[in-house]
Simulated assay, not measured.
Amino acid sequence: MRTFVTSVGIATLTLAGCSKAPEEADPGPTLGNASTAGLAFTYAYNLTLPARAIDELQEAHAAACEALGPQRCRITGITYDVDRAGDVSASLSANVAAPLARRFGRDAVTAAERAGATLTGAHIGGTEAALEESAAAGQSVDAQTDLARIDRELARSDLPAAERTELQAQRAGRLADQRTAAAARSGARDSIVTAPVSFNYATGRGSGFANQLRDSGDTALNSAAATFGAAIWLVAALGPPFLALLVVILLWIYFARPLWRRLLAITARGDGTPYDPA
C-alpha cells in the first residue's frame, strides 16, 4: 500500500510539473536555445485600426523600443502616409536583441489589441546564418592561403616581369575576396545577435462581419466625399468660363441682337437695295 501511494504521488507531481512547463517556458528564440542557435530571425506584424489611433500606437511602439535602450533596441525606420480619402498607412521597423525580439513583438501586439487594433498578419522567418558565417570563414581561410602562396612567389628574385604583374593582380583580387568574406561573416554574426522587427499599420477595423460592414460604410462615406469634392473642383475649374459664356450670350440677346437689327433696318431698304441718305 505504501509503495502504491508513493507511486501515485510521484505521478501526480510529474503531471503537475508537465502542466506548468508551457507557462514557464519562454517561446521566444534565445541564443542559448539549441533549436534556434545559429538562426537569424525576422519578425513582421500587420495591424489594422482606426486612422485616428495609428499615430498614437506607432508612438507607443517607438517608446517601448527606446525604453529598452540603444544596446537592445534601435529604431531603423518610421513612415506615416495619408491618402486623399483620409486613410492612413504607416510602419515602424527596429533592430532588437535576438533574445528579446519575439517577446518584444508579442508585447507590442498585445498593447495594440488593448488599444483596439486587430492583428491581421504575423510573419516570422529564420535563416541559417551560422552556415553563412561558416562559409564566409572558409572563404577567408582560402583567400589567406592563396595570399601566402602568392607572397612566396613574389619574393623570388628571378621572377619574370610578366608573371610578377599577373601575381600582383591575383593578390589584389584575393585581398578583395578576403574583405568580402570578412564583411559577410560579420553580417551573419550580427544577424544572429539582432533581429529586425517591423510593424505595418493600416486603416480599418479588422476582421469579422460587423467590422466589414463598418469598413464598407466608411468606404461609402469616403467615396461620397470624394465625389462631392470632385464636383466642387469641376465647378471651381469650369465655372468661370461658363459664366463668361453666359454673360456673352445675355449681352447678345438683350443688347447686341436688337442693335444689329436696327443697323440692318437703317442700311437696307425693303427691296434689298442699299439705302442712300442723299
Rank of each mutant, 00 (worst) to 15 (best):
D158P: 13
T127P: 08
P240I: 08
R114M: 04
Q168T: 08
A224D: 01
A11I: 03
G126H: 12
T145L: 11
V5T: 13
D177G: 13
Q178H: 10
P99I: 01
Q144M: 08
S157L: 12
N46P: 00
R52F: 05
C73K: 03
F209C: 03
V88A: 05
L175G: 03
A268R: 12
A122D: 11
R189L: 11
G229I: 09
F255W: 12
G105E: 11
G204H: 13
G86M: 07
A183E: 14
V141R: 15
L47S: 04
A67I: 02
A268C: 15
T219L: 14
W252H: 07
T180D: 12
A130S: 10
R164L: 01
A115Y: 09
L243H: 07
L15H: 05
R149Y: 07
I192G: 09
R156E: 06
F255Y: 12
T267S: 14
A181I: 01
D158W: 10
Q170K: 04
S198I: 06
P274S: 15
T165E: 02
I192M: 15
V109G: 04
G77D: 11
G208V: 11
A224W: 03
R74Q: 09
R106C: 10
L221D: 09
V141M: 08
E23H: 11
A231D: 08
G187S: 13
A67T: 06
L100G: 13
Y275W: 13
F41P: 00
A155G: 09
I266M: 14
C18G: 09
L100A: 11
E153P: 09
D151P: 07
A268M: 08
L167H: 06
T42Q: 03
A101T: 01
A155S: 11
L264K: 14
W252S: 08
G204P: 00
S198T: 13
T79W: 09
D276F: 08
